[in-house]
């Protein structure tokens, strides 16, 4: 039972590194961005996991109830911001990929590199 309490962190580590693998090993620019967004999502899981409290509920205070336990609001606030940052980076990255496709005719890194070398 104790180990289940750490399962979230293990999934965080695995998902984080799965995304990281796509970023460093794949040559396709869109695949890299997909990897990058998985990589960022893993961090969301880390933060939300640390905010959980046993027997708690979402931090919306109910009137008249005094003995309710609430989960930690701060990590949630931070991750709301981080999600926004993630989608912003993704949008900008995709726009650059579209322009790369238009000027090079490909979105594979090795093909772009060989085109640059030959020019």
């Amino acid at each position: 039972m104790e180990l289940f309490g750490l399962y979230n962190y293990w999934v965080f580590a695995i998902v984080l590194m799965t995304g990281f693998y796509a970023v460093i090993a794949k040559g396709n620019f869109i695949k890299r961005l997909i990897g990058l967004s998985i990589f960022q999502s893993a961090v969301f899981l880390l933060y939300i996991t640390m905010g959980k409290v046993d027997g708690g509920t979402a931090p919306i205070i109910q009137e008249g109830v005094t003995d309710q336990v609430y989960s930690n609001p701060l990590p949630q606030v931070l991750i709301l911001t981080a999600i926004v940052v993630g989608i912003s980076t993704l949008a900008l990255g995709l726009a650059i990929v579209v322009r790369i496709k238009e000027s090079y005719g490909t979105i594979e890194e090795h093909e772009v590199q060989s085109l640059d070398r030959s020019s």
Binding site: L36, G93, E109
Partner: peptide, 17 residues
């Protein structure tokens, strides 16, 4: 400039994360 900035974007985002 485009592939260069893409590389910067990927490495910069990894750094920030």
């Amino acid at each position: 400039a485009l592939p260069s900035v893409f590389k910067y974007l990927v490495m910069g985002t990894i750094g920030a994360t």
